[in-house]
Design a protein around this nucleic acid. Structure first.
Lengths: 243, 243
DNA sequence: CGAAGCATTGACTGGGGTCAACTTATGTGG
DNA sequence: CCACATAAGTTGACCCCAGTCAATGCTTCG
């Protein structure tokens, strides 16, 4: 289903996300479509960027999931952030050409170079907001790891994923394709795979979440949000206004 | 001692840090000195920025320590990152005028508006690198919280502080003023104050660190780095080169 | 000198890690 | 289309790191 047209890389998800972040003008839409016409495909487990390596140009993730990863000398692995359709990869402000982290494809993914802001001025603003959102997700990740229980971490992560995937139109009816293994979720949440399994079981028993064969459904996101005291993520109107 | 001339806000630390990040030209130094002439003083525990509030203009922390903080509905508190002399506050790329987190003064601090890059073009590059470093510290914080034991978290944090404070000349001989309470360190490391105390005790007994009356000494940073497998933080040459 | 904040310690608990077996998917080649 | 191999999910038994509760010192500083 999702797989069937996976090789028709489409700009749809990315454009929906950017447009949700901030309404796009025609030039921006055209440029994004054009850029997405010759996507690069990378298969799962391959490294897109290597920590300490030069960054070429910023890219846009068209489909599939990626992650920024850090690995400790003894092999422990931490996923710093997840990259979803419409997210940018390697977007930074000129001076620093070195990748600050490795980026890996968690599934097969399609990506394309991000249209230059020199050509489409209006994208500058969109990219900047996208970048600010990325930082917001890092901060959310820190609070998750620092001050939440295992149960809260999973619930919070699932809610974040639902909210983010909704932006790009990759979620419907509180459900979405969730291609990660429990081990990868463990690497995001700072837990062990075994314990992730136990907590997922609990979520299932409570009828709060169902996660089978790569598809995750949250039965009542609002109730879950209230339960763990999560402020629903939203792009504030003010965020869009120029300072 | 440190307190005695605290009311003579000085640009020295900030300039040393920026210059260490990337050699400054005379125009930049002059602008920084000028900006630091009329510093704003904020006493401990006061909020500099409130989450969701409009950001005025970027500032430079001249002296004292601050923190980006997030508080959960039930009162749990997580310090997202520490702000040290020479660090920037509220530096972001135009479009997003809302503070993404609260910022509080942990000690009495002095700050001044950051000279505009419109006036001193060369500062743009320096600010960008400073911003990239901030992000790098967030990523370090994530790995600390996600994949390190309490012992490693404290050792890693202390080493990061030593390295960062060395840049601004606020550390000498592997030692520095450390004004935080154990409770605040707990809020940085995602632990409880009680457990921070126990780990600090262990560090003391092993003669790895000594922390008394606001002064922290690491007896052998390199040995400690090796022990916990920490890559010494450094600003790579390549980071300074223009892409 | 007393009060308030911070550091220190002990006794106890529990959330989450570890180890290991077993089951269920996924997938690959014959 | 089945047989087997490999990866992923599931479960139980056990343990330990770090949290909790609570008492006691130790500093500041008014």
């Amino acid at each position: 289903m999702t797989q069937m047209n996976a090789h028709f890389a489409s700009a749809a998800a990315a454009i929906r996300r950017f447009d949700a972040i901030m309404p796009l003008d025609e030039g921006a839409i055209a440029a994004l479509h054009e850029a997405a016409r010759r996507p690069r495909r990378v298969s799962a487990h391959h490294e897109l960027l290597t920590e300490g390596t030069a960054i070429s140009e910023p890219h846009i993730l068209l489909s599939g999931w990626g992650a920024r990863v850090r690995i400790l000398p003894d092999g422990r692995r931490q996923i710093l952030s997840l990259l979803l359709p419409g997210d940018m990869i390697g977007h930074c402000y000129q001076p620093q050409p070195l990748a600050i982290t490795s980026v890996v494809a968690l599934t097969a993914i399609d990506l394309c170079p991000a249209p230059s802001t020199d050509e489409v001025e209006s994208l500058r603003h969109v990219y900047a907001i996208s970048h600010a959102l990325d930082e917001a997700f890092l901060l959310a990740q820190i609070t998750r790891l620092g001050r939440m229980s295992a149960y809260e971490r999973l619930a919070d992560l699932f809610l974040e994923l639902l909210e983010r995937l909704s932006l790009s139109g990759n979620a419907q009816h509180n459900a979405f394709d969730h291609p990660l293994t429990q081990e990868l979720v463990a690497d995001v949440t700072g837990l062990t795979p075994v314990h992730v399994n136990r907590v997922v079981k609990r979520l299932r028993h409570r009828d709060e979440a169902d996660w089978h064969t790569g598809y995750l459904t949250l039965s009542d996101p609002d109730a879950l949000r209230r339960r763990i005291g999560r402020t629903p993520f939203q792009i504030s109107q003010a965020m869009r206004r120029r300072g």
